[in-house]
Design a protein around this nucleic acid. Structure first.
Lengths: 154, 154
DNA sequence: TCAAAAGTCTACTAGTTCCATAGACTTTAT
DNA sequence: ATAAAGTCTATGGAACTAGTAGACTTTTGA
């Protein structure tokens, strides 16, 4: 049940972009190089990932001096599920329970396949989380954790 | 977030073994060939999978004429999570949230890593299902579905 | 106007994993 | 003794993963 490095890096980059937004300021434009340094990711690999995300409409970019990437929509309107699917494909653990990419799995009787019933539950549990967690939610949650750590360490 | 064929076939085989048990009868001994035919799985591939499951202590076997495989413990004491881990490794989508195989994931600050917080939730959701669903649970659920289909089709 | 700074695009590759298949071997019942 | 079953190890092709390389385009601003 593994998230690929591609997915991990892409999600981390998007979360970083959402986290560097400040209220009442324009969306910050951040360079690949800066993201790769802050998140410790190979910049050439990250480049491909951001390009994919851009072509999927989740990021916009500016070329040339002073250019970089920024979120295509407000952080509250981009969910982790959307990002995940662009980079790692369907969320479902097995194709016969996938909403986005259904395929029969080859069991003798799909309707009564026990594995399918359980994996359907697993799929729903994952989707519930990923599709209902926006980049904004993640940023807020991180801030909350940071604050609680700050308070308890005093 | 994919379950491998290995994991899928192994789970299906175990579910089949649990499903072919009858009350007040000794655990049925089933041959590889029969499982592979009923579940439409390459018998040589299945052979390796069952062997792995046997070496992990989840199956027992009998060699020779009239031999085959049978569950090493009652179906109520074998969970899908146990089987999954033997065949596909840790359940966690990312190593830094794995209980069984923790490794740092390389993010700058693990404690406040937003991705890690969310993936921890995902891990917990999956584990909740897989570790609390036994082979017996699956068999009962399948029977319930079969009954409800039988009733409504009359 | 030109050079530097940035993203864009395509190709390549070493390594790994996945899904098997093959075949020789061991154990057991009759 | 023989046939039926599981055991074990090796091999192979295909796909995928994580990354590297390099030539190209667009934009800014000196």
């Amino acid at each position: 049940m593994r998230l690929s490095k591609r997915g991990e890096y892409g999600l981390r980059a998007m979360i970083m972009l959402a986290g560097s937004a400040r209220e009442n300021e324009p969306l910050p434009v951040v360079q690949i190089k800066e993201i790769s340094q802050r998140e410790q990711i190979s910049s050439k690999f990250l480049e491909q990932i951001l390009l994919t995300l851009k072509n999927a409409g989740m990021l916009h970019s500016k070329m040339g001096v002073g250019g970089g990437y920024y979120l295509a929509r407000p952080a509250s309107e981009i969910t982790l599920g959307q990002i995940f699917r662009v980079l790692d494909g369907p969320v479902a653990p097995i194709k016969c329970v996938s909403q986005m990419a259904y395929e029969p799995c080859g069991c003798p009787d799909e309707q009564t396949c026990g594995l399918r019933l359980v994996m359907g539950d697993v799929r729903n549990a994952i989707v519930d989380i990923l599709d209902h967690t926006s980049l904004e939610d993640v940023a807020k949650r991180r801030e909350a954790v940071q604050q609680s750590l700050g308070l308890t360490s005093q």
